[in-house]
Design a protein around this nucleic acid. Structure first.
Length: 370
DNA sequence: CATGAGCGG
């Protein structure tokens, strides 16, 4: 056997490696189990940025095995490392065969505990409890070498209790598969959401309106604690066809003088996720609009509003955003103005700082970054 | 509630 082939057998892949880890540090750490031939932290060729993984090449296969058995998930610079045999054949890793997803894990279940619970089903290529600064995120992955091990683990562990919590164990699904699944489910909806109807519409009336599209399983106008209609509700049909038709024909239609929205009913989380995404998008756009330079306007007179602030600063250049904080009557004496270039912002700062607006002199500060 | 990341000299 060639030297190269021999060493390859004793090569470990070190994943989830902290950017500050050094070859020296890894060398010292792994030398504790046996002689280390070489260490390589992989970096981007152009930038030299660490790629978050490394190789440890032992002289002896047995030492590599020992490191794998005793040092997996050891914490380096605050991050648990993930050890695997070096496996250069990408398709063996990427096929997804044998990969298992686990959720509803107790926060106290760490990488080692997870490993202990799942290693009896077969050889594990890689496993990991997902975590952030707050600790475990309550879900994990175990990638077995063989699908049969994965099948057994799912069969044996799904619904089992670990640390007082019933865990969910199922085959891993990649994002594309999950999205496809969701959209199939969403496209076959039977539950319909109706909003913006008047409080003269009750369950009975709503049922009367929507029954013509098919058999309804439930009709519910949502009400507040005093029983007053909130102007929205749900109609659940016994078939997708009926629900689809109800949306198609009723959306935008007039019910007792009000134009209503009719659409597929979303789950609360789904709706929240959508709103969150929209919010993120808006935030991004806002950041984009402040790409130039931002001025903090302090000591702002309470009578000044967005429009007036914009007018006062408009002569210095193009303003991408202006905002006075707080509502009319309870302003916070603080506003911001974004220009499209630093030159404009600097000019506005020098000329406007100390200028009296309303009854107070402005105090302006430059914010290069947000 | 929850579906990573991952292979050089």
């Amino acid at each position: 056997m060639s030297l190269e082939a021999k060493y390859r057998l004793a090569s470990l892949y070190v994943g989830d490696l902290h950017a500050d880890a050094t070859e020296d540090l890894l060398f010292h750490k792994f030398s504790a189990v046996g002689p280390v031939l070489s260490i390589r932290i992989c970096r981007d060729l152009a930038t030299g940025q660490p790629l978050g993984y490394a190789y440890v090449n032992f002289l002896q296969l047995a030492d590599a095995q020992k490191a794998l058995d005793t040092m997996n998930f050891d914490v380096i610079k605050g991050k648990p490392i993930r050890l695997m045999w070096s496996q250069r054949d990408a398709h063996l890793r990427k096929s997804g065969v044998g990969n298992v997803f686990i959720k509803n894990l107790d926060k106290s279940v760490d990488n080692k505990t997870l490993y202990e619970h799942f290693s009896r089903f077969g050889k594990i290529l890689s496993s990991k409890v997902m975590s952030d600064e707050q600790g475990s995120k309550g879900y994990a992955f175990v990638h077995f070498q063989n699908q049969s091990s994965a099948d057994w683990a799912i069969e044996a562990m799904n619904g089992k209790v670990i640390r007082d919590r019933q865990v969910f164990v199922a085959p891993f699904k990649n994002r594309k598969d999950r999205e496809a699944e969701f959209s199939t489910k969403a496209s076959e909806f039977t539950n319909v959401y109706i909003k913006n109807f008047g409080d003269d519409v009750d369950n009975e009336k709503l049922k009367g309106i929507f029954s013509k599209y098919g058999k309804t399983l439930s009709v519910k106008v949502m009400t507040d604690s005093s029983g007053r209609s909130k102007g929205f509700g749900f109609v659940s049909f016994d078939s997708h066809e009926a629900a689809r038709k109800a949306v198609e024909e009723m959306n935008g239609k007039d019910i007792n003088g009000q134009l209503v929205f009719v659409g597929r009913a979303q789950k609360k989380e789904e709706r929240q996720a959508e709103l969150r995404q929209m919010f993120e998008q808006l935030k991004k756009e806002r950041i984009g609009r402040c790409q130039g330079v931002k001025l903090y306007i302090k000591n702002l007179d309470d009578t000044i509003d967005d429009e007036q602030l914009r007018k006062e600063f408009s002569s210095f250049g193009s303003i991408s955003r202006v905002k006075v904080l707080g509502e009319e009557g309870q302003r916070k004496g603080f506003g911001l103005v974004c220009f499209s270039s630093p030159e404009e912002a600097t000019k506005a700062l020098t000329e406007m700082n100390g200028r009296v607006l309303g009854s107070k002199p402005l105090n302006i500060a430059l914010a290069k970054r947000h």
